[in-house]
């Protein structure tokens, strides 16, 4: 048990933080823990969590994906345009857009792994290029409303549970299996810890790197379609907020931005923390400016706890084991 705690100290802390935050929020606004409110909190957190899934893989591999906002936005807009409010086209539109998201990820990954372009620049470039192309495509005008099926996926319920929460749960299981049980996961942690050592140990570093960006493209595109269902419409700029929140969720979840550590289970707690904070501030009658200050403070706090200076007991235990 203590070894488990030492290894996953930051993830455990993220969940502890989440619970503490829930209690504090419940204290200030008694209705917060009600079923309906918890339901809407989980739904909102699911969007952050799904986008942050890909971001987690990329960050564990030592990269970063700044193309998330406009991959998300492109998928949302193109889906709305191609479907025109009808359910039937979704049969081919959804696979097509998932493939499109994966393709953008492929380009990002190839740029980073094969051409040695720094991830920040590579993904920034694809982000602005996508932004421009979508603006050209739509001419800045709004799009048709979301198909009913997508609305069901993002706001509907199955025997009381929000559908999107079930989707999120399934994705969490897949991500956990990939990270903890699959060879890909072991390769990924090795790659993030030291690309050179991984390369010499026979890890297919290029393929692993590319795959992380492909996953990120997939989850961003998927989240974009779901988010269209949630808001009923696709609009320009709907992905912008997810750049900050996806990275913040990963950081709060205990992953090092340098790569090689962290887990999607931590990110799940990170996404919950960010969303609970969003709900907490109106209850305290605080402005959106205050929310940004709290976001920043929480990120600073969690990365400080994760830093070497504060590593303390957990770090010492880990070193003894190694």
């Amino acid at each position: 048990m203590s070894a488990f705690l030492a290894r996953n100290r930051l993830i455990v802390l993220a969940y502890a933080g989440m619970l503490a935050l829930l209690l504090v929020t419940a204290l200030f606004s008694p209705g917060f823990l009600s079923v309906s409110n918890m339901r809407s909190t989980v739904v909102l957190a699911a969007f952050v969590g799904i986008v942050a899934l890909g971001q987690t893989f990329v960050i564990i591999g030592g990269g970063i994906d700044l193309s998330v906002p406009w991959v998300l936005n492109s998928a949302a807009i193109i889906m709305a345009l191609l479907c025109g409010g009808q359910d039937l086209p979704l049969v081919w539109v959804m696979p097509l857009l998932l493939a499109g998201g994966a393709f953008i990820g492929l380009i990002n990954g190839i740029g980073v792994a094969q051409f040695g372009v720094p991830p920040i620049i590579m993904t920034l470039a694809t982000n602005v290029i996508l932004q421009g192309l979508i603006l050209v495509l739509t001419g800045g005008s709004p799009t048709p409303s979301a198909p009913a099926l997508i609305q069901f996926l993002s706001v509907g319920r199955l025997s009381g549970f929000p559908v999107i929460a079930l989707i999120w749960l399934a994705l969490t299981l897949v991500a956990t299996l990939l990270l903890s049980k699959a060879a890909f996961g072991r390769h990924l942690y090795a790659l993030g810890t030291s690309a050179t050592v991984a390369e010499f140990s026979g890890v297919p570093t290029a393929r692993t790197t590319i795959l992380t960006y492909v996953i990120s493209g997939l989850t961003a595109a998927f989240a974009g379609m779901l988010l269209t269902g949630y808001s009923g419409q696709a609009y320009l700029g709907m992905g912008d907020a997810y750049l900050f929140t996806s990275i913040a969720a990963v950081a709060i979840g205990g992953a090092s931005i340098l790569g090689g550590s962290g887990h999607y289970l931590g990110t799940v707690a990170g996404a919950m923390v960010l969303t609970i904070l969003t709900g907490l501030l109106p209850a305290l009658n605080l402005s959106s400016g205050a929310l940004l200050i709290v976001y920043g403070a929480v990120i600073l706090l969690t990365v400080s706890i994760g830093s070497e200076t504060f590593a303390g007991l957990g770090g010492r235990l880990r070193r003894k084991e190694g």
Binding site: F244, A248, G289, A290, L291, L292, Y295, G296, I299, L300
Partner: peptide, 10 residues
């Protein structure tokens, strides 16, 4: 990233 958020909030 954190201080950006804080300054933006202020």
């Amino acid at each position: 990233l954190a201080t950006w958020s804080i300054l933006n909030g202020i």
